[in-house]
């Protein structure tokens, strides 16, 4: 299993996030990832399966069920524990990174307001 703490790319993040509420099949993952990202992440089918192969090999995603729909295999994928942990870690990292910027912004706004008051 890959334990690398490398930054997760946005499609991977939303793919994993799409599985938070439970296992989904290929097309449902594409739809849910697009929904969660406000349409920013529109995964092509080839990209989805490349990502699923990689995430399965890394132990973040697992095959949950397989059924035949209209004569074709439909597989559902779910998050593993390490997949959930990686997703949480990425969310925490992004939240900390966002907080750093917003806190500075707030501080500088407050500073500018105080300077304005003093000048007045």
């Amino acid at each position: 299993m890959n334990t690398s703490k490398a930054e997760m790319r946005e499609p991977t993040y939303f793919l994993l996030a799409s599985l938070l509420d439970g296992p989904l099949h290929g097309y449902a993952i594409i739809q849910r990832a697009a929904e969660l990202s406000d349409g920013r992440v529109k995964m092509a089918t080839g990209t989805l399966y490349t990502a699923l192969d990689r995430l399965t090999a890394e132990g973040y995603v697992r095959l949950v069920s397989e059924e035949i729909v209209n004569g074709r295999a439909r597989r559902s994928y779910g998050l593993t524990e390490s997949g959930s942990a990686a997703l949480r870690a990425e969310a925490t990292r992004m939240a900390a990174a966002a907080e750093l910027v917003t806190r500075r912004e707030m501080r500088s706004r407050r500073g500018a307001a105080i300077r304005k008051e003093r000048l007045a």
């Binding site: 290929g26 097309y27 594409i30 089918t45 080839g46 989805l48 074709r72």
Partner: peptide
């Protein structure tokens, strides 16, 4: 391994 599944996803999308 994957052909049918990918085809189903392509057609659904």
């Amino acid at each position: 391994q994957r052909g049918d599944e990918m085809l189903a996803t392509l057609l659904e999308a």
